[in-house]
Computed example of a mutant assay.
Amino acid sequence: MLLRKSPAGFTLVELLVVIAIIGVLIALLLPAVQQAREAARRTQCISNIKNVALAIHNYHDTYRNLPYLGFATSDTHPDGDTVSWYGRVLPFLEQNALYETMNFNGRTNDGNNKLYRSTSLSVMSCPSENMTVGERNGDGTIGNYSHQRSSYAVCVGNTNYAQDNANNWDGLWTYNNGGAAFQMNRVHNLSAVTDGTSNTVMLGEVPTNQNESGWQGGYGAVIFSNNGGFTGYLTPNTRSSVDGGRQCWNPNDFPAHKIPCHKSGGGWQSATYAAFSMHPGGVSVGNFDGSVSFVPETIDIWSWRGMTSTQGGEVLAN
């Protein structure tokens, strides 16, 4: 009677070789997969900016002016803690039901506009960021000062936030803001963009943090007028800091972005909120003509300052 030999299995060495080959293939494929995912996230982010830019244009077509950045309630609260442009364009983002719940005449905090302050909108959230609600109650519920963060803010010009053209305010440079179409207590229309709507940045990405227990800085809380914009004084994704600084309380408020920030000495008005994103290499911006582009973080600072002013008359290289 003949005995049949059992088929030989893998030896340990062969098994290790197969595992090593699989590991190499995964290592080769992983960067490509990550790049594809990042490309998809960036595409979605660009689509969001396009939709928000169109909403602002539709607002302009309806009211013949751009939406308020916000206003300072000087008699009760001078820091501009009011509804920003974000709330005013909600009907043009198919959010009319949320818009109808809002009171635009006073402070946004102190329990006012709670639904507005806690509702996350996908069109205002870059998929490369994790959106969180800041300053929750201790039990995780929405409190009187809770605030939903956002990935996009309008451009308030080549200035600090106050747009006050202060002389030598940072010890480095006396700026001339060259105009801005979004300002506290004032509204403008597109005729204010004399540098050209295709050459001037209307909105762009801003960084957010993930702390849910406190205010933790102004970036990303653009539902409020005192956080609804970014300035063009510093280049995108900058790690630099100036005297006015970033309106935040702790150096590690934005660990994902590694932003060296501190509480600005003059309050939020003197802050320089730079454009910032989690996309490698730069930020996505929307221009006043409704177009969207990607601005590299290596852009010449003077070119960037020219792009973020509305009436500076700068000559920008193509």
Results as ranks from 00 to 15, higher is better:
Met1Tyr: 09
Leu2His: 12
Lys5Met: 07
Pro7Gln: 10
Val17Ser: 08
Val18Thr: 03
Val18Asp: 02
Ile19Gln: 01
Ile19Gly: 00
Ala20Asn: 05
Ile22Thr: 09
Val24Ile: 10
Leu25Asp: 05
Leu30His: 08
Val33Thr: 15
Val33Phe: 11
Gln34Val: 08
Gln35Tyr: 11
Arg37Glu: 07
Glu38Phe: 02
Glu38Thr: 12
Glu38Arg: 03
Ala39Gly: 11
Arg41Phe: 15
Thr43Phe: 04
Cys45Ala: 14
Cys45Met: 13
Asn48Met: 02
Ile56Gln: 02
Tyr59Ala: 04
His60Cys: 15
Thr62Gln: 15
Leu66Phe: 13
Gly70Trp: 06
Phe71Glu: 12
Phe71Ile: 06
Thr76Glu: 04
Asp81His: 11
Tyr86Arg: 06
Gly87Pro: 03
Arg88Pro: 14
Arg88Asn: 12
Leu90Phe: 06
Pro91Gly: 05
Glu94Trp: 02
Glu94Tyr: 06
Gln95Val: 10
Asn96Leu: 12
Ala97Ile: 07
Glu100Pro: 03
Thr101Gln: 08
Met102Thr: 00
Thr108Glu: 07
Asn112Ala: 14
Asn113Arg: 12
Ser118Ala: 14
Thr119Phe: 05
Thr119Ser: 13
Val123Gly: 06
Cys126Phe: 10
Ser128Trp: 01
Val133Pro: 04
Gly134Asn: 04
Glu135Val: 13
Asp139Ala: 01
Gly140Asp: 07
Gly143Gln: 06
Asn144Ala: 14
Asn144Tyr: 09
Ala153Trp: 01
Ala153Pro: 01
Val156Asp: 00
Val156Phe: 05
Gly157Gln: 02
Asn158Val: 00
Gln163Trp: 11
Trp169Gly: 03
Gly171Trp: 06
Trp173Glu: 14
Asn176Pro: 04
Gly179Ala: 08
Ala181Cys: 11
Gln183Pro: 07
Asn189Leu: 07
Ala192Trp: 04
Val193Cys: 09
Thr200Asp: 00
Pro207Ile: 06
Pro207Tyr: 02
Gln210Trp: 05
Glu212Trp: 03
Ser213Thr: 14
Gly220Asn: 14
Ile223Ala: 09
Ser225Ala: 15
Asn226Glu: 09
Asn227Arg: 09
Gly229Ala: 15
Gly229Glu: 05
Gly229Met: 02
Phe230Gln: 01
Tyr233Arg: 13
Leu234Ile: 02
Leu234Asp: 00
Thr235Tyr: 01
Asn237Met: 04
Thr238Pro: 00
Ser241Gln: 14
Val242Pro: 02
Gly244Asp: 00
Gly245Asp: 04
Pro251Leu: 06
Ile259Asn: 00
Gly266Trp: 05
Ala274Leu: 13
Pro280Asn: 11
Pro280Glu: 11
Val285Trp: 05
Gly290Ile: 00
Ser291Asn: 09
Ser291Phe: 09
Ile299Pro: 00
Asp300Gly: 03
Asp300Val: 03
Asp300Leu: 02
Ser303Cys: 04
Ser303Asn: 07
Gly306Asp: 00
Thr308Trp: 05
Gln311Cys: 05
Gly313His: 03
Gly313Glu: 03
Glu314Gly: 13
Val315Ala: 13
